[in-house]
Nucleic acid binder design. Structure first.
Length: 272
DNA sequence: AATACAGTCAACCGCCTAGAG
DNA sequence: ACTCTAGGCGGTTGACTGTAT
């Protein structure tokens, strides 16, 4: 007898999410906070399984997600961390809070693997040299992340982004924002209200919006912030090394590529 | 213009784990 | 101590788009 499905698959919808579904999910999470995914389909009427709801939230709708091109620094961090941790995408993502594990995994599989393979004959000795090389190659490229390399699903991708921006607008409006969140969004602060408004107006322009409980898609961020707090607490219990060290190492842009040999890499590995 | 091929990425599948009962 | 289940994770798939021929 095989493992039972995570949810009753009869009548479960699959495939890409629609804007309407996103709004329903976002409004529900806004009210109840993320978690208890099992009850989400039941309570919202979404014909999606709980896993699908969780995935959609964590990978696309969650506030603070950065979409689009990876910067050379992010790229370097991913390469460093992949060398240290292996394909532990969730662990790697925990050091790139604006990126999702899925995004990092996709980026690794589609870009970095290839890039490292191409560089391998020239420099097989150290990961960090690879980082340095790849960083240099990309250094002159734009750091902007507004447009993605592929325009796949462009129409709806922008809608998703708008939902995310809307949520960021909520987060900004909350006095409980963490310093980290504030720092991460520093660049977005300029014109933030405009972005918020644009996102909001864009969402309002969707068809079929009459069915959405807009009174629920409202001001309070209490539940979400509570969850965020508890997530911060639970993160302190995970197996990751102290962020203070990694911050020093990873977040110091100038240090990228300065670790010259594998011995140093191994020293770093030993803390894990 | 039509077709084939390659690249990208959102979403699914199934296994693993932690925690509740 | 054991079972059950929700949530988390990594691997993989398939739809879609862009590019080459």
């Amino acid at each position: 007898m095989g493992r039972p499905p995570c949810c009753d698959k009869v009548g479960i919808k699959k495939g890409p999410w629609t804007p309407e579904e996103d709004i329903i999910l976002v409004s529900y999470i806004q009210e109840h906070g993320p978690g208890n995914w099992r009850s989400v389909p039941t309570n919202t009427g979404l014909l999606r399984c709980s896993k699908s709801c969780r995935l959609r939230w964590t990978n696309y709708l969650r506030p603070g997600i950065k979409r689009g091109n990876f910067t050379p620094h992010e790229e370097g961090m991913i390469i460093h961390l992949q060398a240290l941790l292996g394909n532990k995408w969730a662990a790697i993502a925990s050091y790139l809070p604006q990126r999702t594990d899925n995004d990092i995994k996709n980026y690794w599989n589609t870009h970095l693997k290839k890039k490292l393979k191409n560089l391998e004959p020239q420099s097989s000795t150290t990961t960090s040299r690879l980082v340095s090389k790849s960083s240099n190659i990309e250094r002159d490229k734009s750091l902007e992340f507004a447009s993605t390399s592929s325009s796949a699903a462009t129409t709806y991708a922008s809608s998703t982004e708008n939902i995310s921006r809307l949520l960021q607008g909520w987060m900004r409006s909350s006095p409980k924002n963490t310093n980290d969140n504030n720092n991460n969004r520093k660049a977005e602060e300029e014109g933030g209200d405009l972005i918020f408004r644009e996102g909001f107006e864009s969402i309002l322009s969707f068809e079929h919006m009459n069915n959405v409980a807009w009174d629920k898609v409202a001001v309070t961020t209490e539940n979400y912030n509570k969850k965020q707090k508890s997530d911060v607490n639970s993160n302190s219990k995970n197996n990751n090394p102290p962020l203070s060290f990694l911050e020093k190492w990873l977040l110091d842009e100038s240090s990228a590529g300065q670790v010259e040999d594998m011995n140093q890499m191994m020293e770093l590995s030993s803390i894990f």
